[in-house]
Write a protein that binds this DNA or RNA. Sequence first.
DNA 1: TTTATTCTTGACCAAACGGTCAGTCAATTA
DNA 2: TAATTGACTGACCGTTTGGTCAAGAATAAA
Lengths: 205, 205
Amino acid sequence: MPRGRAARFPQQQQAILQHAARLFASRGFPGTSMNELAAAAGISKALLYHYYEDKYQLLVAIAEGHIDRLTALVEEVHAQPQAAEARLRRLIARFVEEYAHAHAHHQVLVQDIKYLDDDDEQRIRAKERTVVSAFAQAIAAVHPALAVTKIEKPLAMLFFGMINWMFTWFREGGALDYDDMSRLVTDFVIGGLQRVEGATEADQE
Amino acid sequence: MPRGRAARFPQQQQAILQHAARLFASRGFPGTSMNELAAAAGISKALLYHYYEDKYQLLVAIAEGHIDRLTALVEEVHAQPQAAEARLRRLIARFVEEYAHAHAHHQVLVQDIKYLDDDDEQRIRAKERTVVSAFAQAIAAVHPALAVTKIEKPLAMLFFGMINWMFTWFREGGALDYDDMSRLVTDFVIGGLQRVEGATEADQE
DNA sequence: TTTATTCTTGACCAAACGGTCAGTCAATTA
DNA sequence: TAATTGACTGACCGTTTGGTCAAGAATAAA
């Protein structure tokens, strides 16, 4: 006698999340009202609450979904057997690619994470840390000297700064495309790491 | 028979702006209420409106004040006669220093600029562009080949990404201090630029 | 001392907020 | 086909929002 959920339910939920990500990204979490979101999704506000418990759960779903995809990406690259520098290059290229694809979700992850409860924030930051660690490890594999002075993580963070910020100013259709950017960032990082390695070795003498 | 403004007026205005910058930085512009700000400043909400016309003017004052200081900083370094690489190093060091000093104001400039009216946003973004251009120029002075392919500005933006992001993760008291960070960033950038110069020259052959 | 003005506040306002609710309608299944 | 539930909405709720206002206290110039 019951009646199951409609087959469209997950798609509709996903569509709402997509609109939410775009709005949160451009107007911020507190700056986005549920009325705006309902209008953007083309449904009533009440129906919004049929698909998500409340506004906050949307934020959690966006942030957690994105960091989980990044984690999966790291593991995917890690699983492929290849030389250290090739792996670092591949990692950088795949991240630029993923950020370009999930622009809004990524912006929400970096800019609206502060609106999470302590519990949720800590859980998601922990996942972020594993991603950063994987990057730091990939860096240390190319330049073992950097791990000696324990600056692989700060260097990984400098890299994340570059590409997080990239999507606030980079617009496709200009002189450079994503491939150019990916190559530019990769060369910049590889060169920067070499130089820092040289400088730290000089310091230790 | 009149009565001038109290001598404390500008200081009080400045103190309020300081509290506003800290709150906007940590909770976002739409996420900060005037009640919270009044409480943080230790005054009534009504008195807040004696010192500032409305909430929006606080945002403008924070953003514009900060970008004006950065502009002044660029001109100060530009006025000193010195070699190209020394000037770039000096510029980077002074920026890291200034960001460290005006942490909250800077965060507001980068994260809450989107809440400005079109007019104000355009005016402030124009000022930002002059700062970026100055950096791009300093980069091109060290590596003229980069200007040929017109990638000095993207490279300058990669640099800004590094240091903008830096203040979301870097905390004094750890293994590295600001001087270490400044040196690390500088070496990283100098090395990265060299490598990119080499790569672009190879592309052109 | 008078007088004009600033400094300061608690009480207040309309609008917008996140969220709820009663109820309509359509689909599923027994 | 009758019962049950999911999909969906407009009207509504209490609270908080940015902002105002009348009025008192403090203060400096005349």
